[in-house]
């Protein structure tokens, strides 16, 4: 695996004050941040799952609840919306759940204190925990992604599906990290993140057609990244998408949000307290 590739260089560092040479391993190794991402995910995700595999089942079931309801109510008519909505909601949930994890590790366990006072960067820490969250959701994501491919699209659309998944997961994880870094209490984090979840995955046209919105609200919906994530999934499944929307627009908006949220997480998230 690429992330496991060992290129740990030993750097010799000279103390400014003493001239004493200290061996500092890998602090400047180019692959170390990637290795750290994997190790943080390993520590907080893989090892947990290995000892508590049942938790993966619990995490996997929840994204299917609305899919089931919509499928039953519409007699299968809105299956495209149901699958797209469930996948988007799952990704938003896994991304934002990172914020809850971070708050937990920061306020309850003080684990973040260890990471802040170490060579691990905030972005590396965020990516490691985000990857860990994704591992918990892997079964649900695999089933939902399979349903997308099965519901009419060709194998060739898989790269589009993967890109869409990565874009929404990445931007939501960065947002979760940014929000949680400003929370002083675990309860605040849970409340804010639940609220943002509703704003991004329930209210916008994620589970329903954007066409039913009045013109003004439609433009507003196009400003929300999850609208585009859902439309891109509907497009991938071969469903009809609105005439005033294009795949290009979907990518542009999602990439803009990803870049924006990662920049926000990198520059404005609180790592060292002030």
């Amino acid at each position: 695996m690429l992330l496991m590739k060992k290129q740990v260089a030993e750097v010799r560092m000279v103390h400014k004050t003493s001239g004493r040479i200290t061996s500092i391993k890998a602090s400047t190794s180019k692959t170390l941040p990637l290795k750290q991402v994997y190790l943080i995910a390993h520590l907080t995700g893989i090892l947990w799952l290995r000892r508590n595999p049942v938790s993966m089942i619990f995490t996997a079931i929840s994204p299917f609840s609305l899919l089931f309801v919509l499928f039953v109510i519409s007699n299968g008519q809105y299956v495209h919306f149901a699958i797209a909505g469930s996948l988007v909601m799952a990704l938003v949930g896994y991304g934002l759940a990172l914020g809850q994890d971070i708050s937990f590790y920061k306020t309850e366990y003080k684990i973040q204190d260890l990471f802040v006072a170490s060579p691990v960067s905030p972005l590396t820490y965020m990516m490691g925990l985000a990857l860990s969250e994704l591992l918990f959701g892997l079964p649900a994501l695999t089933v939902l992604a399979f349903l997308v491919v099965y519901s009419g699209s060709s194998i060739l659309s898989i790269p589009l599906l993967v890109a869409n998944i990565l874009l929404i997961w990445g931007s939501m994880s960065a947002m979760g990290f940014f929000l949680s870094s400003h929370m002083l209490h675990m309860r605040n984090a849970t409340q804010v993140i639940s609220f943002v979840n509703v704003i991004l995955a329930v209210i916008p046209p994620v589970y329903y057609s954007v066409n039913i919105l009045p013109q003004g609200l439609r433009y507003l919906a196009y400003a929300v990244p999850t609208t585009h994530a859902s439309l891109m999934l509907q497009y991938t499944m071969g469903a009809k998408t609105p005439a005033d929307w294009s795949l290009f627009l979907g990518f542009v908006v999602q990439i803009a949000y990803l870049v924006g949220f990662v920049a926000l997480a990198k520059t404005k998230a609180i790592w060292r307290e002030v």
Binding site: I24, S27, W48, Y109, D113, A117
Partner: peptide
């Protein structure tokens, strides 16, 4: 500095399952 230091935080706790 972060390459050269290590810390035991006050009231820190290890992760339960590990």
């Amino acid at each position: 500095i972060r390459n050269l230091i290590s810390i035991v935080p006050q009231e820190g706790r290890p992760l339960r399952a590990l």
